[in-house]
Design a protein around this nucleic acid. Structure first.
Length: 112
DNA sequence: TGTTTGACCGGTC
DNA sequence: CGACCGGCCAAAC
């Protein structure tokens, strides 16, 4: 808790790792879950650095509208869509379809 | 040490 | 409904 700032990136990574396959969450939701509401940008910033960690499913993190804002940051940009599609998440025009259904709130845990 | 920048969000118009 | 504006906080320069 005290070293929250130091571990902020790790905190984000931990949450992202918890995202179930076939589900997506938002930067804001993660930030809010970490008690840093309004600091969604930091989550995105953390994700940018997350490239060094292969175990982090960054493709399951999108913005609030379900838009794949992080797409250009992927190795081949299509990698993000590819992975999501393989997990059963329908993506069209860089936007997650049925986003409300696919959305997974960290605070909600492993709900259906 | 101060400034700039970002894989964003919420409220307003 | 879509477009716009201000704010948020850490890292990089």
């Amino acid at each position: 808790v005290k070293a929250k700032r130091q571990n902020f990136f790790d905190q984000v990574y931990q949450v992202v790792k918890l995202i179930p396959a076939g589900r997506v969450t938002t930067y804001g939701a993660i930030a809010s879950y970490l008690g840093a509401r309004g600091s969604a940008r930091l989550v995105g910033y953390a994700m940018n650095a997350a490239h060094a960690y292969p175990d982090i499913p960054a493709h399951r993190v999108v913005n609030r509208v379900g838009l794949l804002t992080g797409k250009p940051h992927f190795n081949p940009p299509c990698e993000m869509i590819d992975r999501l599609t393989k997990e059963g998440v329908e993506v069209k025009n860089d936007i997650v379809q049925q986003f409300e259904v696919r959305f997974w709130d960290p605070a909600m845990g492993l709900d259906i």
